[in-house]
Design a protein around this nucleic acid. Structure first.
Lengths: 109, 109
DNA sequence: TTTATCTATCGTAATATTGCAATATAGAAA
DNA sequence: TTTCTATATTGCAATATTACGATAGATAAA
């Protein structure tokens, strides 16, 4: 017990939960927003920008990368991280499709 | 160590992470989708529907409720859970605003 | 009342996440 | 080569999450 029973849910539900989990942390939200603010992705000033140690940032970047929300490219000495629109689109369209159906559920609550 | 440093991030970033965390679990995604499928919110058949024990479902419902994604109303013997559109709208509009900015970041990666 | 049903809570075990110091690795610069 | 700078990995401690059996509470039905 303790481990999520991911085998009992659909592949789509599991995929979505991976994407959402990657975004479900204030530090990772802050990283994503920083990558957007700096229109170019010349990166890790992130370590200087956020109040977290370098290994912690590195770990968060890894999770965002594993989920498919960012990509990383070696650029000389440094690494250039940038957002991968596809993952974000999956999240967005999920909620865009979900929400109209909420209104349809006529509920007396 | 181990605790999320939520005090270092903005209130908005923390609020969003709470909403996303509530949705970042396949069981809770399945619960939300079930509440939508059953257009009325006469609820806990959820326990019979999902491959999880009743206390586990109850716990997941509590988290969805704490995050503000569902409401629960006593209805005789049972409890009527239904979706609260507001929380979902916050998630949706966050990604709707975020995504156009991804394209603007001209990145060679 | 007694019994059945529905839901919540408690207690606990297994597992996952978070954060960081220390260290490793890899390329750039000297 | 050596040194510096950027990033990743390891190892560990603190904390959080997940799941469920046992139990409690509250209403419904008998």
């Amino acid at each position: 017990m303790g481990a999520t029973k991911s085998d009992h849910f659909t592949k789509r539900q599991n995929q979505l939960s991976v994407l959402l989990k990657a975004m479900a942390h204030p530090a990772r939200i802050a990283i994503v927003e920083y990558l957007i603010k700096k229109k170019s992705c010349i990166c890790n000033d992130i370590v200087n920008e956020l109040p977290l140690a370098q290994p912690t940032i590195s770990q968060h970047l890894k999770e965002l990368k594993n989920a498919g929300l960012i990509r990383g490219n070696i650029e000389g000495n440094a690494i250039c991280y940038c957002l991968d629109e596809k993952g974000f689109d999956i999240i967005k369209s999920y909620f865009e499709k979900l929400i109209p159906n909420i209104g349809l559920a006529k509920c007396s609550c």
